[in-house]
Simulated scan of single mutants.
Amino acid sequence: MTDPRTGPLRVAVVEDQPLFRSMLERMLDETPGLHVVAAVGTVTDATRVLRPGVAHVAVLDIDLPDGNGIALGVTLRRAQPDLGILLLSAHDAMDLLLDLPRDVAAGWGYLSKTSSTSEEVLVAAVRAAAVGETVLDPALLARMTPRAGSAVARLTDRQYDVLRLLASGLSNAGIGSRLGITEKSVQNHVNAMYATLGIDTDPSRNPRVSAALRLLEETGPTA
C-alpha cells in the first residue's frame, strides 16, 4: 500500500444514504491525490470489504442501519492501527470521541453533516486523519466556550484562537494566515498553550491530538 504522505491517499466511504454516499465518493475521488477504493452502506459490507491495507482513511457515518460507525471504527482500527478514521453525523455527537477505548483513541476526526458542508473542510479532515491527527468540526467548535475553572479557560484569547484552529486541522502556517501573524508567532503560542494545558512533547504522543481532545473535554456549548 502506498505511503499516505507520498502517494495517492486511499479512502473508503461508509454511508447508508445512497445520494450522500455518491456525492462523497465523487467529490473525494475527483480531488487530486485522493482515490476512493470503496463506498458501501452497511457495517456488514464495510467489514467484508475493508481488510487491512485496503484504505488509508475510512470516512464513517455514525448512524448505520446494522450498527454504528464508532464501533465499526474501533474494529477497523484494531485490525489496522494506522487507519485514519473520520466520523460523520447528522447530529452533534462530537463528544463521543472522548469515550473511545484508550488503545484506539488517537487520530479520530469528527465532522457534522449539517454544519461542515465545505469540500475544503472535508478534504483537510481526510488528509489529517491519514497522518493520525484529530480534526474537530470547526463550525461546532465556534459555538463552544471554555468551562469555568478548566485549564483551557486559563489560555489567553490568542492562545484559545490558536487551539481552536489547530483542532480544526489547520497547520501552523494555515493558522498564521488565518490570524494574520507569522508562523513563528503561531509556534510560540502553541508552545505556551501546551505548557498551560500540561501537554508534554513525548515523541510517542501527538501533542496536537492531545490538545484537540483537551479542547473537546473542557469546553461546552455557548449558553
Rank of each mutant, 00 (worst) to 15 (best):
R48K: 12
D61H: 02
A58M: 08
R77E: 00
D202R: 05
L170P: 03
V162D: 03
P52Q: 09
P18N: 10
R26W: 02
L163Y: 01
M94N: 06
D29S: 09
K113G: 04
V49H: 06
D95R: 15
T44Q: 12
D137N: 09
E25Y: 05
A105H: 15
T6H: 13
L19M: 10
P65E: 02
R164V: 13
G198E: 08
P221N: 11
L24E: 03
P65V: 04
R205C: 07
M27T: 14
K113I: 05
A130E: 00
P207T: 14
D66S: 07
V43C: 09
S115F: 08
P101A: 06
D161C: 07
A128N: 15
R127F: 11
L96W: 10
A142P: 07
M1W: 15
Q159Y: 03
A125W: 00
L97F: 04
R214A: 15
L166Y: 01
L9K: 06
A128F: 03
G176V: 00
G84S: 07
D137G: 06
A148T: 12
K184E: 13
A223S: 12
G69W: 02
D82T: 15
A130I: 05
P146M: 07
L213S: 10
R158P: 03
G33Q: 11
A93L: 14
P207N: 06
V11N: 04
E30N: 12
D63E: 15
V104A: 13
T222R: 08
R208S: 09
D202C: 05
T156R: 12
L60M: 08
A79F: 01
R143W: 05
D3C: 10
G7W: 02
K184Q: 14
V74K: 11
P18Q: 07
G176L: 00
A148E: 14
A130R: 09
V49Y: 00
V209W: 14
V57A: 03
E133A: 08
H35D: 11
L166G: 07
T134C: 11
R78T: 12
A192F: 01
T117H: 11
R205K: 14
M144P: 06
I62Q: 09
P207Q: 09
R78L: 06
L100C: 10
L88Q: 06
A90N: 11
H189N: 13
V40R: 03
V162Y: 02
G73H: 04
G198Y: 00
G41T: 04
L141E: 15
R143L: 14
E25H: 12
V57E: 08
R127Q: 15
L216N: 07
L87Q: 04
Q159V: 00
G220E: 15
A128Q: 11
D16P: 15
N191S: 11
D99F: 09
Y194T: 05
L88Y: 01
V74W: 02
V209M: 10
S204L: 12
G53H: 06
R102L: 14
